[in-house]
């Protein structure tokens, strides 16, 4: 299956802004984080199709998956 991965803030450094990935069926959000060499501890927010999700969320074909470090503002 094919998903789109988007990275933000520090996570873009040495990686990418947006990339399509081919993944085996049943892949989880956490596995994508690991495959990018991102420390799970540094992850602030995960979103799948604009909804918050967790490391154990199972991704589906066509999902848009966004990974943010801990950020804030206001």
């Amino acid at each position: 299956m094919r998903i789109q991965v988007k990275l933000f803030a520090f996570f873009r450094k040495g990686r990418f802004i947006k990339e399509d990935r081919e993944l085996p069926e049943g892949s989880t959000a956490g596995e994508v984080v690991d495959s990018l060499d991102i420390d799970r501890e540094e992850v602030g927010v995960l979103m799948c199709n604009s909804r918050h999700c967790g490391f154990d969320t199972i991704l589906q074909d066509g999902d848009i998956y966004a990974i943010f470090p801990v950020i804030g503002g206001g």
Binding site: A9, P69, V70, I71, G72, G73, G74
Partner: peptide, 14 residues
């Protein structure tokens, strides 16, 4: 970590 992100990107990180 939020302070660190604020120092780099400002509140516009949002």
């Amino acid at each position: 970590p939020v302070s660190q992100a604020l120092g780099t990107y400002g509140s516009n990180v949002l």
